[in-house]
């Protein structure tokens, strides 16, 4: 489970954890029934308060992405992947639509925007 918390993103850490675990599951990098890192271990790895991780796990469980067995830990739930991929695509679609509108408003062309996305993506990958 290779998670990475961005410091100044404005996205609360628990939400970053939720999103990244969803992405790992959606991408098949976490298998069904695979055990997630225990709360304490992930907290120590990410250097966040254990309650932050606990909150992320609770949200993931409430949304059906993971299940928890008392005393045994948290595991990836079955049957979330295909639906969730579709769902995340539609979420991204929404955000891209509003981004395009904003860019148009600011006189940034779609071509420049795509270049900018590539540039930021390269920076991100190199930064890792």
């Amino acid at each position: 489970m290779n998670l990475h918390l961005a410091q100044h993103s404005g996205v609360p850490p628990y939400l970053q954890i939720v999103t990244q675990i969803k992405q790992l599951i959606a991408a098949g990098r976490l298998d069904v029934d695979q055990e997630l890192l225990p709360i304490r271990a992930l907290a120590e790895k990410l250097l966040v308060n254990p309650n932050t991780v606990a909150r992320a796990y609770r949200e993931l469980e409430a949304a059906g992405w993971i299940y928890t067995r008392r005393g045994a830990g948290s595991f990836v739930a079955a049957g979330t992947t295909p639906l969730s991929t579709e769902k995340s695509r539609s979420q991204i679609r929404e955000r891209v639509t509003s981004l395009l509108a904003e860019a148009e408003h600011m006189n940034v062309s779609t071509k420049d925007l795509i270049n900018l996305i590539r540039e930021i993506d390269t920076e991100r990958t190199e930064g890792k």
């Binding site: 410091q7 100044h8 850490p13 120590e44 966040v48 308060n49 309650n51």
Partner: peptide, 30 residues
């Protein structure tokens, strides 16, 4: 920060962290 998290992960233990580094305080504090 690891020491802070390790301490509070052990049941019933608490931490008081005074710091100017607000990002760090934000990360680990309840």
């Amino acid at each position: 920060l690891s020491a802070v998290i390790r301490t509070v992960s052990n049941e019933g233990r608490s931490v008081l962290l005074s710091s100017h580094l607000l990002d760090e305080v934000e990360r680990v504090s309840d």
